[in-house]
Design a protein around this nucleic acid. Sequence first.
RNA 1: GCGGAAGUGGUGGAACGGCAGACACGCAAGCCUUAGGAGCUUGUGCCCGCGAGGGCGUGAGGGUUCGAGUCCCUCCUUCCGCACCA
Length: 845
Amino acid sequence: MREVRVERYDAAEVEPRWQARWDELGTYRTDLTDTSRPTFYLLTMYPYPSGDLHIGHWSIKTPTDAIGRYRRMHGDNVFFPIGFDAFGLPAENAAIKAGVHPREWTLANIERMRRQLRSMGATFNWEAEVVTATPEYYRWNQWFFLKFLEAGLAYRAMAPVDWCPKDQTVLAREQVVGPDRVCERCGTQVVKRDLEQWFFRTTRYADEFLRYEGLQWPEPIRLMQTNWIGRSEGSEVVFRTAPDDHQPGGDELRVFTTRPDTLFGATFMVLAPEHPLVERLTAPDRRGDVERYRHEARRKSEIDRLSTEREKTGVPLGADAINPVNGEAIPIWIADYVLLSYGTGAIMAVPAHDERDFAFATQFGLPIRQVVAPVGHGGDDEADAAYIAHTPDEELVNSGDYTGLSAPEGARRITADLEREGRGKSAVTYRLRDWLISRQRAWGTPIPVVYCPTDGIVPLGEGDLPVVLPDDFEFKPTGGNALESHAAFVNATCPRCGGPARRETDTMDTFVDSSWYWWRYLSPHKDDGPVDRELEERWCPVDQYTGGAEHAVLHLLYSRFFSKALADLGLIHEREPFKRLFNQGQILGEDGERMSKSRGNVQDPDDLVSRYGADTVRLFLMFMKPWEQDAPWSSTGITGLSRFLNRVWTVTLDPHGQESGGREEDASRGGGDGGPSGSQALRALAHRTLKRVTDDYEGFHFNTMVARLIELTNALMRYRGTALAGSPDWEETIRLLLLMLAPAAPHITEELWSRRLTVAGEPWRSIHQEAWPAVDEALAAEETMELPVQVNGKLRDRVPMAVGLPRAEVEEIVRAREKVQAALGGQEPLRTVYVDGRLINFVVR
RNA sequence: GCGGAAGUGGUGGAACGGCAGACACGCAAGCCUUAGGAGCUUGUGCCCGCGAGGGCGUGAGGGUUCGAGUCCCUCCUUCCGCACCA
């Protein structure tokens, strides 16, 4: 037994040393102009500089780093940049609270987070870093805005918008969440306001958003986007108002319907309370009720609309509309279940075939007329529920000339006939709204327009950019936009007439910043344009993007909008930003809730890193769960990964040593005898492991990847101190182990690799510049196996035998077994199922 | 209500339709010891049994199959998205 002990692995010493060395050598710098190797653009969602990196950042970024290192070992030129999403409200709140300029607060946090990010030992391309709150970056937001204006992709409009009373700003539709309609950032319930605001015309690409060809995106994300866009095909039908004592009639009332086949069943019409024609159509004796209802509806959208099951409400206007297919006059109502923002803000109500209309009709005693029925069922006007079932053989009833047609055919014919008369047409509507980008906040990209008393709204010229945020904000404790009271900022000159003008004080949604940052990484300091077109063509789209699923209809949809808009402007060549997307699961707080400072359940990785080292933390995060799965945080189990790395250290540096322990004879240990056959078996295991680990890296199955490496290390551990230790096969196994582990645990593998090179008298070379090893398939193939034997599907025996024996021979061997005979009980099998090399099953019954 | 994901030991989690529970934590017993937040060995799904062994087991219930955690049907539970979208 050897007395000499190798020193233990000291992460605190090894990790910073290598991090410094890699920096110094520029090991991970990427030459974007290198055309000799395939490019691999690896992107992970850039962090908001809140001040502290938490364990969730590690759990997305370190496995992503492992992917990059793995690709690098395959010879790819990997670009893996990082930056900071540096505009946003927390900085303003800090400014109000602590009286510091939001820039100072943000830059200090960034500095702190850079240090924390570096402790991961990741291959970030720091030379490409972008910080969105710098004029160097946000001037291009302004530039895009001007280009979008020219292209009709940006516009200003009055609209009922969502206002967050706490954050004191409007929000995009995507940023209002849940049944309670709360602010995505702060959870406060939003209220409706009529305001004139800036929009990006996302709806221009609604149909294109629905096409995902060539995108390897998770199905749930695509579904969420598809549902969000909410494309709906149907017809627009023009009703006209009937004349009466109070108005001349003849106004067009357009409705959108997905069921033009039910047009004969329309027994009333409903307008949204805010519909512009309400005023004009209301009969004098109805005015009081109508005004009251409209007021009530307005108020309702401001208080919680928790109960979606609430009773239908509405009032009649005292006017009629004429159904274009049969000339029938039907009463016009207003009701808050019809939304102004969807379709045309008006519906034809067909209570027989729509649940909501049915409920409304029942509530107010309006007629119900069935116009679609299964063949031979006629019609029923006393239905107790709306008939909305779609049977293949349903036909139109009570529908004039169309009676007897199948429902789809009826829909086609009715629409076609209306179209001929100019009273309707096929139509498509979307749930998707244009993106409201104005924010009444100071810490964001100033919108580059001025309001001139003579010229109105005037966009600045490109030469006037950037519009820079002032250095001397004064934030009031009451909140509000500090830019508004900043005279030097507000007082501007009209670029058109040269006279005094008021500068726009709204800034852009920070999602504008994050909609194009990966293009900027390619040339972060380029000052004659936002994107280097040549590099964009070489590197884009992004090969692999990683981040949370919470951005399904926010960042990920906005980014697709930018791709299409910029491609249409000729700035880039690709219409999709991210070829392959992966959503890692979230690490929740120990309480199972989303980690947040306000809940006080944020986990700080720094403690763990100083106790166990970055490699252990990286491995633990990969090992604890499948990457895509959410899980509450618990550090239980991290010691297992720490022990694992210690064993890797031990088998590499001290193969001949032996722990004193309850060991038996060497020869009987761990199934290995230390002789030539054991030696072969070890190498075979190494190659089988390599095969599986390779597959696991490819599929991002990091948890099983780590498990396989632990297994291999445990096998090495069993052979340690035997004659096999230190043999060429042993050494080869160690070499493979370190290479396989290198992407996941970069520091310890670099240290061990370098020590081995020293011992071998070879010049130093980073393990992270080695090639991924090739599997020796012949070696990896199993030679012997244990064949499971079933009788009637129940496991009865396991029989060791050579691989590849003919079936007859296998059966003979197996049936000779005592246990098998006992289980067969002397019966001759009716049938024998043999799955080559997997299993044999005798059916006796 | 609609759409999606998921239910496996004490715990985190493994399992091309073919040995359920890999790997790890925890726990137990033992070894070693410079007595540590260290290392090593063995065991550990549940029940019966001293043991050999047997029975039962993947949310519930049906089905397909020689064989089902895995496929199909009907439920239950949890989480996520949408919120009267005509």
